[in-house]
């Protein structure tokens, strides 16, 4: 067994919270630059220039890229040969978010109860997704999720007969209905298959994939390209002011499902779709 202390986990999480919120991913910046080159109209060009300049200022001034520094979603890949010592793993992660949000001057956007709505004032509790994997390492990914985009997401239980056409229609409708709300150009995460809750989790995880990477399954790679083309014909454009770039990418994560169903979840990520990870 390899020992990793709770304090190591807390340190790593705190640092990832600040980094994810202040440093736009290189893949995102490259995709925004590419989009800027493709736009021909004045307004979408200006919006993309503004977003690129904003990312640069955030990095230079160590300020959050967006004021909505999100609810902290943490993915943990826990090696089965790891023993966490000196405290509970759950507590260590929550401590890390608490510290990262305080030290990084990030916004506290979490309320204790969905209806009674008192702000917890430390951005906890955290949403944590654990998977146990072979090996003796822990991989932590912090994906702060803003709700301008989260609110525009949707799950639908399609019928098998709806097939690929039904899936594509649902994705397109969801992005169309979102309009300018999720701060486009967006990243579209799609979970297809599994069960009701797994489809949503797959859609969220699809947002962690680097923009510009290829789906390993040629069938789904083809669907992603076609859907991206269709989404970018919606003329929602950067900031929702019209233009060719409504999405930077469509990422689809398929999974086996039941003979009677075709669950599809669409999780919309904003123009910066933040996530930073580390392996300990």
């Amino acid at each position: 067994m390899r020992e990793i202390t709770a304090a190591q986990i807390t340190d790593a999480i705190a640092q990832l919270c600040v980094e994810a919120n202040t440093h736009a991913g290189a893949d995102i910046v490259a995709a925004l630059e590419q989009a800027r080159a493709a736009e021909t109209e004045e307004t979408p060009r200006q919006v993309l220039d503004t977003l690129l300049q904003n990312a640069k200022i955030a990095r230079e001034d160590n300020l959050p890229i967006c004021q909505d520094t999100g609810m902290a979603v943490v993915f943990v890949e826990l090696g089965q040969e790891v023993h966490i010592t000196g405290g509970a793993l759950d507590g260590a992660i929550n401590d890390g978010v608490r510290r990262g949000y305080r030290e990084g001057y990030l916004r506290n956007s979490v309320v204790r109860d969905p209806v009674r709505r008192d702000n917890t004032n430390d951005n906890t509790p955290v949403v944590i997704h654990y998977t146990v994997v072979p090996g003796d390492t822990v991989t932590l990914t912090v994906a702060p999720k803003g709700f301008g985009s989260e609110n525009m997401s949707a799950v639908k239980m399609l019928n098998p007969s709806d097939g690929l056409a039904g899936l594509e229609r649902f994705v397109l409708e969801t992005v169309r209905d979102a309009g300018g709300n999720p701060c486009p150009p967006v990243v579209v995460g799609v979970g297809a298959g599994g069960t009701f809750e797994l489809a949503a989790l797959l859609a969220k995880k699809a947002l962690l994939r680097d923009v510009g990477t290829v789906n390993p399954d040629p069938f789904w790679d083809d669907v992603e390209r076609r859907l991206l083309g269709a989404v970018n014909s919606l003329n929602i454009g950067p900031g929702g002011f019209g233009g060719k770039t409504t999405a930077l990418a469509v990422h689809i994560s398929p999974y086996a499902t039941h003979i009677a169903g075709l669950p599809v979840a669409v999780n919309i990520g904003c123009h910066v779709t933040r996530h930073k990870g580390v392996m300990i």
């Binding site: 503004t50 904003n54 300020l63 909505d68 701060c183 900031g239 929702g240």
Partner: peptide
């Protein structure tokens, strides 16, 4: 409308 997400720039 302001540009959504350009918050570091707006702070200036």
């Amino acid at each position: 409308s302001a540009i959504g997400g350009a918050a570091a720039l707006t702070a200036r």
